[in-house]
Design a protein around this nucleic acid. Structure first.
Length: 574
RNA sequence: CGGGGUGUAGCGCAGCGGCUAGCGCGCAUGGUUUGGGACCAUGAGGUCGGAGGUUCGAAUCCUCUCACCCCGACCA
C-alpha cells in the first residue's frame, strides 16, 4: 500500500474527547473514527488489525474443533421471552419493530438463537459434542460507553457455544477453549491472566475471565500474594477475620439521637464497626429484601442478586424502606417479620453486636444471632477487599485492575431446558444438552494491545496483528536514485509476500519518521542518499533502539527472514 | 439514571454584550527545502450544536433542547 493512497490521516494533536491512551493513539493513527457514543468506524489500517485478530481467532477455534457459522443479528423478541432474558438484559437489549409492528431485537449475544438451531438439528447423543462459533457484530445498549473501544455499543465478537451430553463433556470443551484462548492471546502478543468470574443468576456453575492487567481497566481483580488464586471482585471470596466470641449478654436498648451511619453508631457507642450490624435493602423481582452484614463489610450486590436468584435487582429507595415499616438509620433484623432476610456469614463471626432497634434514634446492644433474629439464608454476600485472607491458602489478598478481554462460561442446561434442546442418550433417556459459551470482543482485544504496547511516540504493534509488517520509508524522494530504488524495493518486498506500507510521500524526514512511529508498524526500512552511498538500507524494529544495515541487493529477502523470525518467536513463546 | 464538564473551520483552541469571528496545525497553488513534526508567498474553508427569548444589536445574556466526554450507578 502506498501511503499517498491510504485513506485516513494521522493527527499531531490529541483529540479532545479521547481520554484513554488506546483511544488517543487509535484516533491519531487514523485507525478509528467515532460515529456516535460507543459506535465507531474502522478505517483501513484499523480494519486490517481486526481482520488479523479475527483470523488468528478463527484458526485457533478451528484447531480446537470449532465449526464456523453465521447467525442473524436480527432476532425475534419472542425468543428472548422464552429464555426470560428480555428481563435480565433489560435496557441493554436494543429493540425495534418491523413494519407489521412485530417486535425484534439486535443480538447482544446468541445463546437463544443457537440453542433453538441446535434443538432443530440435534436429537441424539451421536450428534454431540458440538463446538459452533461465529465472528459477528453484537449490539448492547450500554448505559455508559467509555474509553474509546474499551466499552462500546456495537462491537465484533467471536462467540462459540459448546454442546455436550454431560458435565464431563462440558469440562472437556471448557478446558479446550481455555487453552485455545491462551493460544490466541499469546499469538496476539497480549499478556493475560485467568481469573474466576461471576457466573450470574442463570444457573451457570463456573466462569472465568481473561484479564489484561492495567490501571486503565474498569474491572477489579482480587488475587493472592502467595498462591494462584485470582478472581473478579464480583466473585472473589475471602476468609473473614473472626472476632472473639464473648458470652452473650442480654439485649439492651440505647438511645442514639440523630445517629444513623455505622461510623456514627460505632463512635457513639464506643465500639469498632466490626462489632455492629449493617442493614441494606434491595428490591429483588419486586420484593423488598433485607440484607444484614457485619459493620466492617460492604454488601456485594452481585453476590446478593445471585443468591436471591432474581431477574431484576436493585437497591431499594428510602421511601420503599419506610413503606415497609422500617426506620432507615435504625433498621434492624431484630423482630422483623414478613420480610425476606439474607445474612452474610460474617454475622456468625462475632457476638454482642450493636444493631438498629427499628425505632427512631434507638439502637440495640448485645444482638446475637440466632438468639435475637432469624435469617432466611446465611451466605457470603460481602465484598472482598485487599488485605483479607485468601480463601485457598489464607495469605493476604491484593487488588489490581484489568480489562476483560475474554470470558468463558459454563452455562449448564439453562438454555437447553428453556428452549427445549433435548437429546436421547444411549439408554433412550431424554436429557437437556449441556452448554457452554465463550466470547472474545475483537475491538477490546485490539484496544488492550495498544494499552499494553505503546510509547510516547505511538503504537508498537506485535508483528502478528500489525496492519502492515514493514514501513518502507525513503528519504529525499526527489532524488531519482532514491525514488527508483525505493520503487524497486517496494516491488521486491511485495513479491516476497511481505506486507508493506510504502511512504511514497514527498514529506520531510521528520514527518515521515514520526508517522512511522505513530502507526507502530513493526519494522522500518530507511532508504536515503546516505544509505545508498554504502549500497545498503537501514532497518529498525519499532520496539527497539538499535538500527542495522542490510545490503541493498538482498534487502527484500533479508527483511522477509527478519519478519518470519519474529513471528516464529511469538509462536514459540506459547 | 444521578453528579460534573464541553459544543466556534478537518483537528487543537481563543473570543464571553459592540464594526466584516480569530490563532496554530492541517488543506490548495507556486517556490525554496528534507536523518526526528521545515520555510516564504498566495488562497479555500464557519447557519459559532439546535430552537426560542431578552436587546437597537447575541458566538457572548436567559430558557428549553440535542450531542459528546468524565465520575458514579449499571454492564447474563
Amino acid at each position: 500500500m502506498r501511503f499517498s493512497n491510504l485513506f485516513g490521516k494521522t493527527l499531531r494533536e490529541v483529540p479532545a474527547e479521547a481520554d484513554s491512551l488506546s483511544h488517543q493513539l487509535l484516533i491519531r493513527a487514523g485507525m478509528i473514527y467515532q460515529v456516535a457514543a460507543g459506535v465507531y468506524s474502522h478505517l483501513p489500517l484499523g480494519w486490517r488489525v481486526l481482520k488479523k485478530i479475527g483470523q488468528i481467532i478463527r484458526e485457533e477455534m478451528d484447531k480446537a474443533g470449532g465449526q464456523e457459522l453465521m447467525l442473524p443479528v436480527l432476532q425475534p423478541f419472542e425468543l428472548w421471552q422464552e429464555s426470560g432474558r428480555h428481563l435480565s438484559f433489560g435496557k441493554s437489549l436494543f429493540t425495534l419493530s418491523d413494519r407489521r409492528e412485530h417486535k425484534l431485537c439486535l443480538g447482544p449475544t446468541h445463546e437463544e438463537v443457537i440453542t433453538e438451531l441446535v434443538h432443530h438439528y440435534v436429537q441424539s447423543y451421536r450428534d454431540l459434542p458440538l463446538l459452533l462459533y461465529q465472528i459477528q457484530t453484537k449490539f448492547r445498549d450500554e448505559a455508559r460507553p467509555r474509553g474509546g473501544l474499551l466499552r462500546v455499543r456495537e462491537f465484533i465478537m467471536k462467540d462459540l457455544y459448546s454442546f455436550d451430553i454431560d458435565e464431563v463433556g462440558l469440562d472437556e470443551s471448557y478446558q479446550r477453549m481455555v487453552q485455545a484462548y491462551k493460544n490466541i492471546y499469546g499469538r496476539c502478543g497480549l499478556s493475560t491472566v485467568l481469573v474466576e468470574a461471576d457466573s450470574g443468576a442463570i444457573g451457570g456453575k463456573e466462569s472465568h475471565e481473561f484479564m489484561f492487567v492495567t490501571e486503565a481497566g474498569e474491572d477489579e481483580i482480587i488475587y493472592c500474594s502467595n498462591c494462584d488464586y485470582a478472581a473478579n471482585v464480583e466473585k472473589a471470596q475471602s476468609v473473614k477475620p473472626k472476632l472473639e466470641v464473648e458470652a452473650p449478654l442480654s439485649l439492651e436498648e440505647v438511645s442514639t439521637p440523630g445517629i444513623k451511619t455505622i461510623e456514627e453508631v460505632a463512635n457513639f457507642i464506643g465500639v469498632s464497626p466490626r462489632c455492629t450490624l449493617k442493614a441494606v435493602f434491595c428490591i429483588a423481582d419486586g420484593e423488598l429484601t433485607f440484607a444484614v452484614i457485619r459493620g466492617d463489610f460492604e454488601v456485594n450486590e452481585v453476590k446478593l442478586a445471585n443468591l436471591l436468584n432474581c431477574v431484576e435487582f436493585r437497591l431499594a429507595a428510602e421511601a420503599e424502606v419506610e413503606e415497609a415499616g422500617l426506620i432507615a438509620g435504625s433498621a434492624s433484623p431484630v423482630g422483623i417479620k414478613r420480610i425476606k432476610t439474607v445474612a452474610d456469614d460474617s454475622i456468625t463471626l462475632g457476638s454482642n453486636f450493636v444493631a438498629g432497634a427499628n425505632k427512631a434514634d434507638t439502637h440495640f446492644k448485645n444482638v446475637n444471632y440466632p438468639r435475637d433474629f432469624e435469617a432466611d439464608v446465611v451466605a457470603d454476600i460481602a465484598i472482598t477487599r485487599p488485605g483479607d485472607g485468601c480463601p485457598k491458602c489464607g495469605s493476604q489478598l491484593l487488588a489490581m485492575h484489568g480489562i476483560e478481554v475474554g470470558h468463558v462460561f459454563k452455562l449448564g442446561t439453562f438454555f437447553s431446558r428453556k428452549l427445549g434442546a433435548f437429546f436421547l442418550d444411549k439408554n433412550g433417556t431424554s436429557k437437556p444438552i449441556v452448554m457452554g459459551c465463550y466470547g472474545i470482543g475483537l475491538e477490546r482485544l485490539l484496544a488492550a494491545t495498544v494499552e499494553q504496547s505503546h510509547d510516547d511516540k505511538g503504537i508498537i504493534w506485535p508483528v502478528s496483528i500489525a496492519p502492515y509488517q514493514v514501513y518502507l520509508c525513503p528519504l529525499y524522494l526527489d532524488n531519482p536514485q532514491v525514488s527508483s530504488l525505493a520503487e524497486k524495493l517496494y516491488e521486491d518486498l511485495r513479491e516476497e509476500g511481505v506486507e508493506v506500507l510504502f511512504d511514497d510521500r514527498n514529506e520531510s524526514a521528520g514527518v515521515k519518521l514520526n508517522d512511522a512511529d505513530l502507526l507502530g508498524i513493526p519494522l522500518r526500512i530507511i532508504l536515503s542518499p546516505r544509505t545508498l552511498k554504502i549500497q545498503s538500507v537501514e532497518v529498525k524494529w519499532r520496539a527497539e533502539e538499535l538500527t542495522q544495515l542490510l545490503s541493498l541487493e538482498n534487502a527484500a529477502k533479508e527483511v522477509k527472514q527478519l519478519i518470519n523470525l519474529r513471528l516464529a518467536e511469538l509462536l514459540s513463546s506459547l
